[in-house]
Design a protein around this nucleic acid. Structure first.
Length: 251
DNA sequence: TCGGCTC
């Protein structure tokens, strides 16, 4: 790809590039680089224009989630597109729809404790072969290719299970198991349940609880224990508010 | 070549 992007990295510089793809959408150029180093595997997605460059880093465990979410935005009707959040370990990715005279776009923003927020913006595109759909297709190719580079301690089928599990509920707008209750009532149910739990201050279990602010409400999620189930990528919480879905899980 | 961007 462009020039020598790793030249100023210093130190290791041992990252191996497994897959590299580019996608042009309107006047933007997106670079997809699946890389691996001793700490693990990740997907670097860069948006490049003549004036700016922006990069997000997706842990390998998040690639199938990105694929699912882009499928959701590609396949959903315009009036049922909601913002989404995806938490992967210590990172949070925000997916937000925007609209202006240039057209519709999807803003994907990465926030983590150690770095400044970085954002890429993907135009929806004017035909089914460009924009979000093309972006989705690249993600699918990389996801598939990633399975061919299976790591010794990772079964390729794990990612497939994530894909199936999320596909059913990603666009439903309801909490599974609560039938056809509207989103608002499900949210209140979740709040009530959360307020019954001990607060983080009371337990002192720093690092195993999350506090989420959403609109005027505040949600507290307590992760009770650390068992083998968590290392498998579960449990996953889903908290719905009126217009936003949260997906969280730890690896 | 645009141009978007609370967390």
């Amino acid at each position: 790809m462009e020039g020598n992007s790793g030249g100023g990295g210093g130190g290791g510089g041992s990252d191996v590039e497994l897959v590299s793809k580019t996608l042009q959408v309107e006047h933007k150029l997106f670079y997809f680089d699946l890389k691996e180093n001793p700490r693990g595997r990740y997907l670097k997605i860069s948006e490049k224009t003549s004036a700016t460059r922006s990069t997000i880093i997706v842990p390998s465990s998040g690639i199938s989630w990105f694929l699912d979410l882009f499928n959701y935005y590609v396949n959903s009707e315009e009036h049922e597109l909601f913002s989404k959040e995806l938490q992967l370990d210590s990172k949070v990715f925000y997916f937000d729809i925007g609209d202006n005279r240039r057209g519709r776009f999807l803003k994907v923003s990465e926030a983590s404790v150690s770095r400044n927020r970085s954002t890429i913006i993907v135009p929806a595109g004017s035909s089914p072969d460009e924009g979000w759909a093309a972006f989705r297709n690249i993600l699918a190719e990389i996801h598939e290719a990633s399975g061919l580079f299976a790591m010794p301690n990772q079964k390729p089928s794990d990612a497939q299970e994530h894909l199936v599990g999320l596909s059913d509920d990603v666009g439903a707008g309801f909490i599974p198991g609560h039938g056809n209750q509207p989103v608002s009532s499900s949210s209140e149910l979740t709040v009530d349940r959360a307020t019954d739990l001990p607060s983080q201050d009371e337990t002192g279990l720093t690092g195993v609880s999350k506090v989420i602010r959403a609109d005027q409400k505040r949600f507290s999620l307590i992760l009770g224990t650390t068992t083998g189930a968590i290392s498998l990528g579960y449990p996953r919480w889903r908290v719905l508010t009126g217009h936003r879905s949260f997906y969280r899980y730890r690896v």
